[in-house]
Design a protein around this nucleic acid. Structure first.
Lengths: 114, 114
DNA sequence: TCATTATATAAGACACGCGTTATATACGGC
DNA sequence: GCCGTATATAACGCGTGTCTTATATAATGA
């Protein structure tokens, strides 16, 4: 299974989204998806692990899962070929790049929430 | 089937890659994939059509397929959450944005090929 | 109208991904 | 060593996606 197939599943995308906010033990992810059983989550975690999208770190009986998004750049690279086609309103991206180039102003005016 | 599932198939990604170079009649795509039969290609085209990634235009008996990549921006939007994680070497992207902002210099020094 | 070209659809086989329940493994505390 | 917690694996059913071959539809040209 490759990265594209791994993220084709909405549950796995949701799991990555959660892990993007910070690492979590597997049990937390099980609780986050009450519609699925523990082995179900465990299998999804295995897929993400095998495809290299997450890292695992044992801590007592727990397994702490962390996002390892390097391979998502493959997806990004593939998209590059198509970016020329929606040449406007990639504001989010541009804002991100601006933030990169001037880390002094931490997202001016933006995101007063949280 | 959504966009994520649609691009999970490598054949469909290859078809999109071909269409990114310009529209093509279905028959051309059939020829481009000798390892697959004509109905196989036709089914993949149907998926891409239904998910809104391509447009079809009849021309005599032919069906001209064209890339319609707007929905790929969904993928791009999803990736935004993760872009913070590989914060360097998105040179290609930055170059693209630079090109957008100053269309005067058409990719300086770059791509002398073709 | 009939034959040819171009593409789509039908029907079926097969594999495989996803979910389940049941069970195994591993660690910590007593 | 034994028990409870945390997670992984096994075994299996089921749906569905992806091929195939055979056939239908549509347009062109004689």
């Amino acid at each position: 299974m490759d990265v594209f197939e791994a993220i084709a599943d909405p549950t796995r995308r949701a799991m990555l989204d959660l892990l993007a906010d910070g690492e979590r033990p597997a049990g937390d992810l099980v609780l986050a998806f009450p519609s699925m059983t523990q082995p179900g989550i465990s299998r999804h975690l295995r897929v993400l692990r095998e495809v290299g999208l997450v890292d695992v770190r044992p801590q007592a009986q727990q397994r702490i899962y962390a996002l390892k998004p390097e391979r998502l750049s493959e997806l990004d690279a593939w998209l590059n070929k198509y970016r020329a086609f929606w040449p406007a309103q990639l504001d989010a991206l541009e804002r991100h790049l601006d933030r990169l180039h001037s880390p002094s102003k931490p997202t001016p005016k933006r995101s007063p929430r949280r």
